[in-house]
Design a protein around this nucleic acid. Sequence first.
DNA 1: CGATAGATTGAGAGTTTTCAACCGATGTGG
DNA 2: CCACATCGGTTGAAAACTCTCAATCTATCG
Lengths: 216, 216
Amino acid sequence: MSLEFNNNQYLFNILSEKAKKEISSKVFKKNEIVYHQGDEPQHVYEVTNGHVGLISISHDGKEILLRVFNKGQFFGHRTLLSNETYHATTIALTNTQVKSISRRDFEAEIQTNNESLLYITQVLAKELRRSENKFAELATTKVEARILQTLAFLRTRYPNYQWTRKEVGEYCGAKTETVSRILTKAHNEGLISKDGRKINIVDLEKLYEFAENLKA
Amino acid sequence: MSLEFNNNQYLFNILSEKAKKEISSKVFKKNEIVYHQGDEPQHVYEVTNGHVGLISISHDGKEILLRVFNKGQFFGHRTLLSNETYHATTIALTNTQVKSISRRDFEAEIQTNNESLLYITQVLAKELRRSENKFAELATTKVEARILQTLAFLRTRYPNYQWTRKEVGEYCGAKTETVSRILTKAHNEGLISKDGRKINIVDLEKLYEFAENLKA
DNA sequence: CGATAGATTGAGAGTTTTCAACCGATGTGG
DNA sequence: CCACATCGGTTGAAAACTCTCAATCTATCG
């Protein structure tokens, strides 16, 4: 396997035949929790359909949306690899179907199948980049730019999900009311249109550019 | 190799004999740059002695300290694994000696030596956790708690480095002046002592606890 | 149709930064 | 080894940003 890898391949498709036999399937209703922050990791999951959010919940109940997984993306891997308990909670954002393999089968897989492990590692490396970029943005950029950028990103990456103001805020470190205000402004600028709660991006390129200019 | 791994082992010690033959060594003076944000990755490095900072520099020059590497820690791996250009710049924080292997040798290594790859992956998984925790802290916690927590963390993890106010701030998303104010306050509370520019932690446990209580 | 969750808006408060001035430590060249 | 330049640190006052709180409105769903 070359280091050039297909971003869109599915982990569960490249597992060894042995591991594939152990895949099971499960369904979660919207708002159901897949696993809790602090739990011992038992499985690795891949989304068959729907959306799952990885959410960090602080001592006083503030929620931060760290990552989102949609069709074909896997989760739960980080914790198993680092031998820790889950550092955040995963919740089904929509009705969701997932496949999973057990901790034991996953560990056997990564110890015997270099190709699977390499793919997982490459995904981890990208997740780390994204996380560190998010951190740098949060530390250096004003809310308006963050919110518009996040809106554009989430819409590009998860086109079939209707994001709420709360979720957009939790993804980029902003309060719901602030997101609402910025959206109203963006609407007045003709960057987005609003159809009830639904947000439509008029021109994605323009939105990215607009957000970029706010930083200058 | 079990998933139970020794956090303190050195990557370059577990490389295959073939890769070990290709290790070369280099020295960087304080403030010298190892590689630049945007560059194509050419090597993976391991610190023999000294400290290296991974710094994200924004369009308008704001610097964020993403990670720090000291003796035995390796860097440059993330970018090679994700097939991207460097997302941040590495700078020697002190006079530093590093070992390195080339991109080609690294790629050969991870494709043939599952043990090395597994170790790298475990480190990546921990780096991701730390990064996401930092993000959640930045989004939900006030500066004072962040600064004191960061101070305690940096001092624990890199005991031989004398952190400046600027660096502490860049690590947790705060301005130098703010760090200075908080340090003065912490000094008055008897949490730290100051010897010129040097910061000494009087009681680490107490400092952690104090920072924790600020969140409640 | 009523209940509930999500969205909006305004006013005021709080936090952190910005800007500016000044101080103290450190290190280097004459 | 001193003089001085430089870098890092400190402090105050004001400004800027974002949040908080509260009231109100609008969708959506059973």
